[in-house]
């Protein structure tokens, strides 16, 4: 496993939508390197024939009767929004200008 470069971390931060400062990037490269080196220990385990486990319990799909039940009204749902307009969440532009 090759160590993470500063560019790798910047790319990952972009994927995760976190606008890291240069100072944060510098610090994070070293810290993540140490952590990754340690967690890479899982690769020492011979587990080719082991079934991966994503959840502690056997999961079955759960459904409920398809009946209308009370839900939050627009006013309550929007009460904590950073911005709202015409009973809707108001968000910054989604598309690029050109």
């Amino acid at each position: 496993m090759s160590a993470l470069s500063r560019d790798d971390v910047a790319h990952l931060a972009g994927l995760a939508r976190i606008d890291l400062s240069d100072a944060e990037l510098d610090r994070m490269v070293g810290e993540l390197g140490v952590i990754l080196e340690s967690v890479a220990k899982v690769q020492e385990v011979a587990a080719d024939d082991i079934e991966p486990m994503s959840h502690p319990l056997p999961i079955t799909n759960v459904t409920r009767p398809d009946e209308v039940r009370p839900s939050l009204g627009a006013e309550v749902a929007l009460a904590m929004a950073p911005a709202q307009e015409q009973e809707r969440f108001s968000v910054p532009r989604i598309l690029a200008e050109d």
Binding site: A47, I50, P52
Partner: peptide, 14 residues
């Protein structure tokens, strides 16, 4: 190599 392998280790722990 990471998440998948970790899930297998999780099974071994269980």
């Amino acid at each position: 190599a990471y998440y998948g392998q970790a899930q297998k280790v999780r099974r071994l722990i269980a």
